[in-house]
Amino acid sequence: MLQVRDLAIKLSDAKWEGRSFDCLPMPGESGVLQVTLSDQEEIPIYITATDTQLLCISYLFRTDELKSETVNEFNELCLQLNVSIPLSAFAKVGEQYVLFGALSLQSSFDDIMQEIVTLGENSAEALEAAEPYLA
């Protein structure tokens, strides 16, 4: 099974589309790796390996950061947009809005780097797109 710590070692030396990856394993037993993309330190990507997939998640904002009167409209928009966003999808974990991508554990290292960079770019764009809905 793919270990996020091994991934961290490989990512630290790698570059993809001119981006480098700053890796920091999160404390605790959850096996989460924080990856900060160069030139995009605002939104780190968090990587977790489960039995079947590699999950890459970025945490966008909490529900209480949205204007309460437009939450429904925003949710609807997210559902509408999901298919159009390359490789990533909107989701909610508890009160956190997230953007995530799931990869097979058999994915190549290039696939993983592409996923992380794309997710990072999508996250920045998602934040900008969500601006009118932020409180």
């Binding site: 605790g28 977790t48 999950l55 998640i57 974990v93």
Partner: peptide, 16 residues
């Protein structure tokens, strides 16, 4: 199991 690990991951991220 996926739900659980996503929760755990989120917990450790929000904690930090």
């Amino acid at each position: 199991k996926t739900t659980e690990s996503v929760q755990k991951a989120t917990m450790s991220v929000t904690d930090s």
